[in-house]
């Protein structure tokens, strides 16, 4: 079985004004199977967006990249050398965060489809229209939107249109960047259900980037929690929800307000950090309530049990299992 995405030691950074490298992603290894729905959860500065951009092939040209990235069997990133030809836009498609600003206000929906399909698959206007209709149907819109301009559509419809455009080129993998953050609450469930459906019925590999761990839980079967450029916990969503082992994951789950459950919020101290040149200690050191001396050395990703599908980056994950937050 070919893995959809395989990352080996991927590091992505940028040069700042003092000509130092600031790493956004400091070393990520992961495997996403074909047909999986995978969520990358994290706050600002975690590197999740950068990692997603790397998989989508849309990193800015001045990014510094190390490590290897293999998408659908093709080596696209090899220690600084990029080769996304045939992958970007065709095998991997990207759904941007803010549909309002990602759609060209001067083009109708149909024109959006046409130009993309003409350039990627050399389709004619008629063929493009047919595919457009197909895609729109899959996202629950009908042909009336074809002639509309983005500003004539509601926020939810705009989001659906961007999703339709993303799947029009029949990709194998779609990356959704915070698909629900600019959408109203009552539409959120709808978008997530749609993504779920695309994953299940069309067999698309879904990679979702979000800060909302509960949205992730609603759609994905595997989750990776990122903190300061590294994955600190990864596994099946059931495992993370019911048996979170990393203090960060536990506190994150705890401090997200949930309607109907008025649990006392136990907030974290401090703020998620911004870019770092590089750190040798555990990324959670300054905010972790369980930090000890050994945490000054960065822990490795260890499996929680023999099955090896739930991994944690914490020296104390075994002993903290029974400790209350």
């Amino acid at each position: 079985m070919v893995l959809a995405v395989k990352a080996e030691g991927v590091k992505i950074g940028y040069i700042d004004e003092e000509d130092r490298v600031q790493w956004a992603v400091r070393g990520v290894d992961l495997e996403i199977g074909s047909g999986d729905s995978f969520c990358i959860v994290g706050e600002s500065g975690s590197g999740k967006t950068t990692l997603a951009n790397a998989i989508a092939g849309i990193l800015p040209p001045h990014a510094i990249i190390q490590g290897r990235l293999i998408i659908d069997g093709k080596l696209v990133l090899d220690n600084g050398r990029l080769d996304f030809n045939g992958v970007r836009g065709r095998i991997v498609s990207y759904i941007p965060q803010n549909p309002g600003t990602s759609l060209n206000p001067f083009m109708t929906v149909e024109e959006h489809f046409y130009y993309i399909l003409r350039d990627t698959k050399s389709l004619s206007r008629r063929e493009a229209r047919r595919i457009a209709l197909e895609s729109l149907m899959k996202v629950g819109l009908d042909q009336s939107v074809l002639e509309m301009y983005p500003h004539e559509l509601s926020g939810g419809m705009q989001q659906r249109v961007t999703i339709a455009i993303a799947i029009a080129s029949r990709p194998k993998i779609i990356i959704a960047d915070e698909p629900t953050s600019s959408v109203d609450a009552n539409l959120r469930a709808g978008i997530l259900k749609l993504l779920n459906r695309l994953n299940r019925e069309l067999g698309l590999t879904l990679i979702m980037v979000t800060h909302d761990i509960y949205s992730a839980a609603a759609v994905c079967n595997k989750v990776a929690v990122m903190l300061v450029g590294k994955i600190v916990e990864m596994g099946e969503v059931k495992a993370l929800l019911y048996d979170p082992r990393h203090p960060y994951t536990r506190i994150l789950l705890n401090c997200v307000p949930v309607l109907g459950v008025k649990k006392p919020l136990k907030p974290l101290v401090g703020e998620p950090p911004r870019l770092y040149s590089d750190i040798k200690h555990c990324p959670f050191l300054d905010r972790c309530p369980f930090a000890v001396e050994t945490c000054k050395v960065e822990p490795l990703l260890e499996p929680v049990d023999e099955k090896r599908d739930h991994v944690v980056r914490c020296w104390r994950f075994k002993e903290l299992k029974s400790v209350e937050l």
Binding site: A185, L187, R188, A189, N196, Y214, E236, V237, L259, D309
Partner: peptide, 23 residues
């Protein structure tokens, strides 16, 4: 009603999702 439901829908989805084992 629909507003409250959409929040509950989300938590339902996350619960049912995690209850099904995929792999």
């Amino acid at each position: 009603r629909s507003l409250v439901m959409s929040y509950q829908l989300l938590s339902n989805m996350s619960r049912s999702e995690s209850e099904e084992s995929r792999l």
